[in-house]
Design a protein around this nucleic acid. Sequence first.
DNA 1: CACAACTAAATTGTGCGCAACTCAATGACG
DNA 2: CGTCATTGAGTTGCGCACAATTTAGTTGTG
Lengths: 161, 161
Amino acid sequence: MSSSSTPAAASHPPLASDVDLLRLDHQVCFSLHAASRAFGGVYRDALKDLGLTYPQYLVMLVLWEHGPQPVKVIGERLRLDSGTLSPLLKRLETAGLVTRERSAEDERSVVVRLTEQGSDLRDRALPVPLKILSATGLSVPEVLALQQLLGRITNALDQAH
Amino acid sequence: MSSSSTPAAASHPPLASDVDLLRLDHQVCFSLHAASRAFGGVYRDALKDLGLTYPQYLVMLVLWEHGPQPVKVIGERLRLDSGTLSPLLKRLETAGLVTRERSAEDERSVVVRLTEQGSDLRDRALPVPLKILSATGLSVPEVLALQQLLGRITNALDQAH
DNA sequence: CACAACTAAATTGTGCGCAACTCAATGACG
DNA sequence: CGTCATTGAGTTGCGCACAATTTAGTTGTG
């Protein structure tokens, strides 16, 4: 708890006051919020050619990697519910990238499947990650460390929620 | 750039393929996206009592910290444009937390000011940051490091954008 | 078999984020 | 002084996120 390296908030005795925390908090929540939106902006640029939004890209990644799967599974992988996925998938269907059909075994379930066009789009998506990586200015090890830290936080937050 | 400390992704020869990157990318963008939403969930809980959403809370933080200021300045601090702020501020005004009035010197500018009620809300917001911090399961130094890293990334991404 | 509990999608409503645009006020320049 | 570019807010439109609800299909139990 030495205060010599952090000039800000250094004018206080041992115990951090609520006021300090309110300022710290400002920076933590804000920096994550801002980073998330900054990523959104760069992805938006990179995905414009493909005609995909960022969340749509996430869904396509899941489909490219794991093949046909029900909406529920996609939702579990991306932690998104049907309220978000249903309209999103409808847009992907309208764009001709996926099909949606009721499962035969369980009529409640809707299986999402890539169309030929959807599969082909993968080739054009290949250069995207490198663009993003270079835009972050991070090294690969740094990215991995960040990933790990974020994963830890997400799990902790999900449990608290 | 030795990779001995990071066992993951160590099974590859020098050059990572596009396919690898596509999977890596999946995890990077997704983990940030997920972390951001996980934070949103916890803040939602913590702010429910105050009747604030997470972005509204950010605006209130700025007002508590810096006092009355034009919409433009709030937007600069939070990197939000009028398209987001105008309706948000209107909701805060309807809730009786802020007032909005045209500046006398520059009639284009609208100054946002806390009401008595808005100022008072600060006391009830004080315990929020500690709740969030403990929900993350991170130590204060870890939070500071994360903050710094995210700041670096955001700057880099904003430049690329 | 009938009925209750549960599950998967979809729908509805609210709010955020952002691009594109409008409008009024300001400032710069000839 | 008049004109034109710029600036600050606001509006519109679209898509995402999420809570709450609805609908239809499934499963469990008496």
